[in-house]
Amino acid sequence: MRIDELLEEAKADAPPARLAVDDLVNAGRRRLRRRNTGWALAAVLAVAATVGVPQILARPSAQMPAQVPVAPSPTKSPPKAEKFSLVAPFRGYTVDGFTVADPDAMSLSWTSAMIRQAGTDPDDQDGILSVTPPGVNPEPEGEFTTFTTDPVDGRDAYFLRQSGGGESLLWKLADGGFARVGSTATMSRSDMRRIAEAFKTGGGKPIRTALSSTYIPDGYRIYVASGLRARFITAAKAEEILTNPGKEAPDLGGNTISIKLEQANGGFSNAKDRCSEDEPECKVRVGGYVLVVSGDGVKPAERQKIFESVRPANPEDPSTWTPADEAYPTFVRPEVS
């Protein structure tokens, strides 16, 4: 069999498409509108209102305050231990034709930011800059080869090439953690080095998110937050990761809660909350997105309670997002020594 026949055969039993032509046309229209005129929050609310968001937006205000209580704590009783804070350890910067964006995702194990090359589509991603705290092994899973190179900022550095492609430059930071520039084929080793040499820690901004929730079950702690996603793990697992970090991608254990906004597609057409015991997740359409709450090891009633407490902001307008530290009950931030 020829290679082209093999490839055709490999995709021969495609599942039914969830996407329809209308979904793509609508997505294109939305994108064009954003490009041309800026994006209005009122528009998404109007769209959302017609497809069932009222279930979220119009829940009884007595139980669901419009804003998540942030616990401003003006009196600030002396904390016994510091809370883990979702404030990035570095900020975005530009160097020689590359832009490192402000970090947009952070976990107990890593913080990451997108790298884009000047002159390319702003939605294209040409690499990732990630920083891991001291104690976390920043090397990826799988086979790789390392090549020592000149120090970066006076500290050890090396290139890491994964067995099938993909190269990164890793270098040690002053606090004992590591930073890593993961390249695509558009980035040469000297590009990676220039990006690394311009990197500075500090000055990072809070990670912001379009999600917030007034209810997370006791005993859960936040593991990761980004613009459209959050994942919670057990307090014991969070403590384990913070005290004995191990790998960059640790085993999160069986009990996790995930809250996310995904782009809607043709396969999702219901206009009502969907939170049945038959399904492992609760879903509702929010404008052009679907809010999904899932929980491994979480009872359906708990899952529904989380779902009903979620307040999505406009996923396409980051100016409406809140700092992730303020988006959930304070107790979900684990204590760090």
Binding site: V25, A27, R31
Partner: peptide, 24 residues
């Protein structure tokens, strides 16, 4: 997209990410 990323769901995400750009 499926042959590239090996997952039908991600493949649709890729199509959904790419084609609206073409529209613009």
């Amino acid at each position: 997209a499926y042959l590239t990323c090996g997952d039908w769901q991600l493949a649709e995400d890729a199509v959904l990410a790419a084609l609206p750009r073409l529209y613009v």
